[in-house]
Design a binder for these strands. Structure first.
Lengths: 214, 214
DNA sequence: TAAGCTCCTAAACATGTGTTCAGCATCGTC
DNA sequence: GACGATGCTGAACACATGTTTAGGAGCTTA
């Protein structure tokens, strides 16, 4: 934990405070006075340095994005599987940035789009490699499968409280992740259905109505 | 479409307008003036009938919950698979209610908790039945598997825009659902991995550190 | 017709919050 | 030492938004 605030510039202190607040409460619910208070600074200074709340968010976005992307570059070929590992093993700092980015994805910021594109691309690459070396099953739509895996991963990490409580936990956390690990891998290893009637039914259903205008 | 507003009481008009706004924009971003305008009514009347914005939300929650639950009771044994079918086939009305409830889940309202509990319970029931009759594989943790399937279903329906765009669509919609149907069913039928090394690794990893305090 | 009730509106009120502004302190430079 | 630049503060401003309130319109009832 290097939250030594004394040797950071006020700009950096504000940015870090903003990241923490945005990650925990979301952009809209966070007000500048709270950020300023956490940074130990006056509300006016936030605007003075960043121009507006929106520009501050943009700076935070880029900052977190750069950290996450560069981390992903270190531990190639990362993918979202690593996201879980790091989330489980790493101390608070990384978790905060992941949390922040998940919020950004929900709120659809430009940085989130870049991050998601990276995740999907990495995921697709891993899938193609796995299919090539025989460790993974061929898919009728690798791109869609990549999106699906990323979607499910993101969903797990952003699990809404009601679902966490349905498992008996107060809210999402490492415990929930561990609880879901085995069922998830069982699903990815053996599937769920013992026959392919559902799959066949879907294939014929999709063939009959290729795309329905709605 | 029966949005004949003339023969509805003002209370009902306000409630319906609120449901539409909450579903589209979320609770916080929606302001009472917008609801009042959609309902063709003055802002004061909203408070006059419902007491506060929060109480209005509560009424909407219960209203949508009742509709969705009762619909689920008609077409037993529903589960979330039906959620997709209805979402694809049904006209706007039902889609709106589903949208509303998904928002409520994100924002963790009491009605959402009830709805999620119902979904998970139905899901678990279906899984146990499927396992019993041999159409589904046994699981080491049926409850967790039920939560996992609901989670993935909810995630698909609430797909964040960046992920929809990664598939080449402007935003989530029926087209995305159809595109993901096949990969999803392939996953549920055959799994993804061709061997169980990952599963075994997870089993041993979980055995070694049953629960790590963090 | 008058009283009273219900439904409803328009304006005002209160508060939260992003932003601006005038000025103060500190520090480097001539 | 004067002076200007930089970093910063506290108060004020502007606006959005939930809520309150005084009162009006139309209906029922005596």
């Amino acid at each position: 934990m290097c939250s030594a605030s004394s040797d950071l510039t006020a700009q950096a202190k504000i940015r870090n405070a903003a990241i923490a607040h945005f990650a925990r409460d979301g952009f809209q619910k966070t007000n500048l006075r709270a950020i300023a208070a956490t940074a130990g600074v006056s509300p006016g200074l936030v605007i003075h340095h960043f121009g507006s709340k929106e520009k501050l968010r943009s700076v935070c976005d880029d900052h977190v994005l750069r950290i996450l992307i560069q981390r992903a570059d270190n531990a190639r070929p990362s993918g979202m599987q690593d996201l879980f590992r790091e989330y489980l093993s790493n101390p608070e700092e990384y978790r905060l940035q992941v949390q922040y980015m998940l919020r950004a994805i929900e709120e659809d910021t430009p940085a989130a789009a870049t991050f998601v594109d990276t995740l999907v691309a990495e995921s697709e690459e891993i899938l193609r490699a796995g299919i090539a070396d025989g460790s993974m099953r061929p898919s009728s739509d690798v791109r869609a499968l990549a999106v699906l895996t990323v979607l499910n991963s993101v969903a797990t990490l952003t699990m809404p409280p009601p679902l966490a409580r349905a498992l008996g936990y107060e809210r999402f956390g490492p415990d929930v992740l561990r609880r879901l690990a085995l069922p998830t891998l069982e699903l990815y290893t053996h599937g769920l259905f013992t026959n392919d009637t559902a799959l066949k039914a879907a294939r014929t259903a999709l063939d009959e109505s290729p795309q329905k205008r709605d």
